[in-house]
Design a protein around this nucleic acid. Structure first.
Lengths: 75, 75
DNA sequence: CTGCCATGTAAAAAATTTTTGACATGACGG
DNA sequence: CCGTCATGTCAAAAATTTTTTACATGGCAG
């Protein structure tokens, strides 16, 4: 199983950049994960834990589904 | 590490039982995880992946945050 | 130009989630 | 009584996510 084709999409980068030019490292610090994790999530390399998803959404003051989306087809 | 104290709550069991007396095994099959995973999620032993969360919510025809909740305090 | 800062890649190690398999119990119907 | 189903526990293996460390690039400020 090579290319993942994750059913989950996300707009983390979008929200992050609109939040006062917050860097990937700063976002990581804010939600308690490393910079590498933020990079991987933004690049869609794997689906984050529901916990990370909640922390990101809450940081931006929105709901989980405002940041993360579901791709029925890929599912 | 030790006792988890998960910041995530869920009403999976509630939704499952209201969905035609669906068993844990049947829910597992429906979303592509094992019965053990359903048990662990319902018991709050760990936070599921965002992917599992989406599959469960979609199966019940609701949003992720209708099934899973965030406990700011524990966070 | 020089020095940061942000982003990106890579790979191995650590941590967590998920699976597999086995066994136990109570409820229930035949 | 006996068999089945749903739930639950346990433990080890497998798979996936996250961390750690290191290095590379381009942009931009001084």
């Amino acid at each position: 199983m090579g290319a993942k084709g994750l059913p989950i999409t996300n707009r983390v980068r979008e929200f992050r950049e609109r939040h006062g030019q917050m860097s990937q490292a700063a976002l990581g610090d804010a939600i308690g994960v490393t910079r590498q994790t933020v990079i991987a999530i933004e690049q869609g390399r794997y689906s984050p834990s529901l916990e990370s998803a909640f922390r990101i959404a809450r940081l931006f003051g929105v709901g989980v589904e405002d940041v993360f989306g579901w791709n029925e087809d890929q599912a």
